[in-house]
Design a protein around this nucleic acid. Structure first.
Lengths: 352, 352
DNA sequence: CTGAAAGCGCTAACAT
DNA sequence: ATGTTAGCGCTTTCAG
């Protein structure tokens, strides 16, 4: 199974190295950590390095933590690691940034289970994490578990009632604005908006952005052009009918899945995207958006950034605004569902 | 930001508790860990428990590791945490199973970067992990990095040349067999297979399964009904034409994205799924499969299981076969793309 | 029933 | 230029 040696696979310690090199442990410590102020003879240094090589010495991170008094761990508790590709991006962003600063991520996914959450946080606290990121897979208000008060904590893709905890969240309003702009920019004036039925920051923010974009373009807001639907394919499929009946020429969908349903509905009627109807989504969910026919113009949810900025705030590298928030932009992604000539990025090569 | 106290936020240790409770540290240790053989007076025990509560004592996991000689860490190095929802499932499966046995996962995603990989493994080794899972996001042969020989290691969703490392992999052959069976069971006899262009265990295994299923059903294999295409929407879209021209009534697609492209191609011709063409995918990629119109019958890639079984093998709970492999089944998922009356599971409610 | 003490692997003064 | 030593917070004999 592995190259473990014989009877007592006791790990090789610093003392073993010292012994083999014929020096003291502190000397070994100095050369291994490449300490600045330490003057070690070229001679001895080499002997130590050789011994390290030969014995295959690996420093014990735990022992180090113990003496230094603080670990290089960062906790990340996620409510849904799996249900969606999104959480993965948050983790990746957090991981990359943590790594860059010498931190290791302790990830726990709780699937919303409160007991698991408490246990996960206890685990992190016992590992003396430098702080923890508490994240949600979709932007919403959360009630952070009690244990979190025992350490530094920043909320990612969610926020707490009081507003006392720093929160890193996507800019829903700007996102909705951008999405609507994409349609406006192509000359559309009757623009439908299929929003979600569930009350949420996304619901309110994107609507707000839609209205503002309309206003800024001198187009009056028509309540009838906004319909709420289940935020998935079925919802989009059903919602597009009424909108088409009102002669919209473009539609902004609450998310890419809704847009996917809209595509189906449009096809069902023998119509075409974008010729008969221009469509813009939200989320930029790769599997869907980039590979629909035609590829879907959309606005990206910045999950990677969210994770990344989350650790930056945790480490004190970025400062939240006065309201405790850091708002991350949602960049527009131009593809062919608004204007045939616009989207030029063909889908990337796919493996397996 | 957090409830840190004053100047020196020194953590409360066991000694503090001992002092507060008026007992010795060893007594505290005994009651905190609920040691079996320890006879502690009801009286003292209560004092300790109270002190623990009041001081908010949290045991230091690092110190514990140091004295016990081994950690409760399991490493998981993944090549692509994010590019796909798949890796997320592997992590989740591993996490759940690890957790169940009191282990904590140290996750590192390397995005295929070799330096990151080496560094990640070094990090894990320094944390004295009990072992590490090396995983790939799509089933393939890998060259596990050298550092892994220093600890127990099991391969997940991949395998090594020599076959010396235990490997947990999906049963591609059985999967291909199942997929084909779904079509055969509905009476189809001219069944196309859109395979992938990239050579891989998936390519060979699924083809093998397809052939076996045909043979077992007394249908002769026709090479012309098998076409290789890019394993995505575009590939499926283009490949379906030639197949339709050969009067296939059903098609087995290398994956769900290919099936998505096939749907488009079928629609383009004014045809219907499953009426004019029955379609079966592979992967069971939720976002796609469950929400296509009609919902796609497919075969699931058992990522969660792969991760779960990976840690079981690592912990010695499951034994690999003589060839070092543990093969995990790919269960068929019946939806409406083969037989209208078959798929009954409407898409689940979707949040946000 | 409870406490004293050794020591896990390492770092950081402090000696030499 | 290098060695000695005292802990970091905890578990675990071994004595009382």
């Amino acid at each position: 199974m592995s190259e473990r040696d014989d009877s007592t696979p006791r790990a090789v310690t610093m003392r073993d190295v010292a012994q083999a090199a014929g020096v003291s442990v502190s000397t070994v410590s100095h050369v291994v950590n490449d300490k600045k102020g330490a003057r070690i003879g070229k001679e001895a240094r080499e002997r130590v390095q050789r011994a390290v090589q030969e014995l295959g010495y690996r420093p014990n991170a735990m022992a180090k933590v113990l003496v230094k008094g603080h670990s290089r761990f960062l906790g990340l508790v996620a409510d849904a690691i799996a249900s969606t590709p999104f959480a993965g991006q948050i983790i990746r962003g957090a991981q990359d940034e943590a790594w860059r600063h010498g931190y290791v991520l302790l990830v726990a996914n709780t699937e919303g289970n409160e007991a698991a959450e408490t246990e996960a946080i206890a685990m992190m606290l016992e590992h003396k994490v430098r702080g923890v990121l508490y994240s949600a897979w979709y932007h919403r208000e959360v009630e952070p578990p009690a244990g979190l008060t025992e350490t530094d904590c920043v909320l990612v893709n969610c926020f707490a009632p009081g507003g006392d905890l720093p929160a890193v969240v996507p800019d829903e309003v700007a996102g909705g604005y951008e999405a609507t702009r994409m349609l406006l920019a192509e000359g559309h004036r009757r623009i439908g908006f299929i929003n979600t039925t569930s009350p949420s920051p996304a619901h309110d923010g994107r609507l707000e952005g839609y209205r503002r974009a309309l206003t800024d373009a001198g187009v009056s807001f028509e309540p009838d052009l906004v319909v709420d639907a289940r935020p998935d394919q079925e919802g989009g499929f059903e919602a597009i009918g009424p909108l088409l009946a009102q002669d919209v020429t473009g539609v902004f969908c609450h998310n890419d899945r809704v847009a996917m349903g809209v595509y189906d509905g449009v096809r069902e009627r023998g119509l075409r995207v974008p010729g008969d109807l221009a469509v813009v989504g939200f989320d930029n969910q790769e599997v869907i958006a980039a590979h629909l026919r035609p590829p879907l113009s959309t606005v990206a949810l910045p999950h990677y950034e969210l994770g990344r900025v989350g650790v930056r705030v945790l480490l004190g590298l970025d400062q939240p605004a006065d309201d405790g928030r850091v708002v991350v932009g949602c960049p527009p992604v131009h593809r062919a569902s608004v204007n045939v000539t616009a989207g030029v990025n063909g889908p990337p090569a796919a493996p397996h």
